[in-house]
């Protein structure tokens, strides 16, 4: 579904949405695994759009900085995504940037904060971070 490059872009974007700090970022916590699983399941209708989205992020990075998205620093990636969120893009996007980004951040949160059985929130790390305990 994703080429290696698309996957790297996706990972970088996920880690800007849920960045690592003293708790794991999205990728380390399994958000990409969650997403890949969902693209074969409930989000199958987005299976083609997601690679288009990462390609568009790539094109955006090239248009704005002449560099690959993953080559940008965190702050530059963040700033670029903030423009995408507002729909202020330079490249030609095959899908509506603001709408797609809004969905993307929801999917990231679903992976991070839902139960580990869904593929993300590895070992319940997000729940530990926020103090949601499961006993019984």
């Amino acid at each position: 579904m994703f080429s290696d490059q698309q996957l790297r872009t996706l990972h970088a974007a996920i880690d800007r949405v849920i960045p690592p700090d003293d708790f794991p970022g999205g990728v380390e916590a399994g958000v990409a695994d969650y997403l890949l699983r969902q693209l074969g399941r409930d989000l199958a209708h987005l299976a083609q759009d997601y690679p288009r989205f990462t390609d568009a992020l790539e094109a955006e990075a090239q248009a704005a900085h002449g560099q690959a998205f993953v080559a940008l620093g965190d702050a530059q990636q963040y700033a670029l995504l903030a423009l995408v969120e507002r729909g202020e893009v330079q490249a030609v996007w095959p899908l509506d940037p603001a709408t797609f980004f809004a969905q993307f951040i929801e999917h990231c949160a679903e992976g991070y904060y839902s139960d580990p059985g869904n593929g993300g929130n590895r070992d319940g790390v997000a729940w530990r971070m926020i103090g949601y305990e499961v006993n019984g």
């Binding site: 949405v17 960045p19 700090d21 990231c108 949160a109 926020i130 949601y132």
Partner: peptide, 15 residues
């Protein structure tokens, strides 16, 4: 809804 502040909100305020 995303980025450090979003994560920090859940971390500090969920409870």
């Amino acid at each position: 809804r995303w980025g450090h502040a979003a994560k920090q909100f859940m971390r500090d305020k969920y409870r």
